[in-house]
């Protein structure tokens, strides 16, 4: 299979993203800063009322870094706004991809990866700024190993998210609108993935259960990997769960896609 077209799609997507300069330089960084400010005031009062210097294994400084990384991680994970997939189904623009001799999902995944790459650049810039201005918290050991394990988890989780979100998007073959489902998915990821509070603040039993679901691997787990908190066993166990979910979700997506195409009418054409 010749994939030379993939690099063209990738570079086209990068060009398109860079042309939205307001989002790149202002909109998204502003959103991250607002989230950090909220976390700052919330956790500041919690630390003060408890009189503690450490909570759930994080110092206040470390928690702030967590809250900087969580939205960045979420952005990398989400890549392209996949809702365009359901738009393609509603509007009939899916027909274009059915005619071209390329895989629809591969095409969309490359777009997704390109946007994740841009988000990764933002991630790198913002983390560097944090490290220069506030320094890296003492309890966190940022090493090459922790960086590489974090990246491996992040890339795998991004693929897992892409497949999961694609399944939700494909419901558009039958439902009139999947927007509310996508909002539910995002809220679930935000809450059960550790975007709202780190999952080690949850009861132990619930964290153990959650680790068998795809959600912790989307925010909480990769951040712990970047912080150097993951043991080798935890890393392998996590990668096994991610791999299993990728397999299960891929098979489900394949089935839903085939069934969906049977009812696709290309309306809007």
């Amino acid at each position: 299979m010749n994939l030379s077209w993939a690099s063209t799609v990738f570079s086209s997507e990068i060009k398109k993203m860079l042309s939205y300069r307001v989002d790149f330089w202002l909109q998204f960084p502003a959103l991250v800063l607002i989230q950090i400010f909220l976390a700052y005031f919330l956790w500041d009062s919690i630390f003060e009322s408890r009189g503690a210097s450490e909570l759930g294994g994080y110092s206040f400084h470390g928690l702030m870094l967590y809250y900087l990384m969580a939205p960045l991680m979420d952005r990398i994970l989400r890549g392209v706004e996949l809702r365009f997939m359901s738009f393609d189904i509603y509007e009939g623009t899916l027909s274009r991809y059915l005619i071209y001799p390329v895989s629809f999902f591969l095409y969309k995944y490359i777009q997704h990866a390109a946007q994740s790459f841009i988000s990764f650049l933002q991630f790198a810039v913002m983390l560097s700024l944090f490290a220069v201005i506030f320094h890296v918290p003492e309890e966190i050991s940022l090493t090459l190993t922790s960086f590489l394990t974090g990246m491996m988890i992040l890339v795998s989780a991004s693929l897992m998210y892409f497949i999961l979100a694609s399944i939700f998007e494909c419901i558009a073959f039958w439902a009139d609108n999947v927007w509310s489902l996508m909002v539910m998915l995002r809220l679930t990821i935000f809450f059960l993935g550790g975007g709202m509070i780190p999952l080690n603040f949850f009861p132990d039993w619930s964290l153990e259960v959650l680790l068998y679901t795809p959600f912790p691997y989307m925010t909480y787990f990769p951040i712990r990997a970047f912080f150097g908190y993951l043991s080798v066993q935890e890393f392998y166990a996590g990668m096994t769960v991610i791999g299993s979910w990728i397999l299960i979700l891929s098979l489900s997506l394949r089935l839903i896609w085939k069934r969906g195409l049977l009812v696709y009418s290309g309306v809007g054409m």
């Binding site: 030379s4 077209w5 398109k16 623009t93 071209y100 809007g268 054409m269």
Partner: peptide
């Protein structure tokens, strides 16, 4: 009644992409 080309790209870029897609 339906655009098939990529709206954000100039035609020349779309054609290059199609050259890759159709090899």
């Amino acid at each position: 009644q339906k655009a098939q080309l990529w709206w954000d790209l100039p035609a020349s870029d779309s054609f290059l992409l199609l050259r890759e897609i159709y090899q």
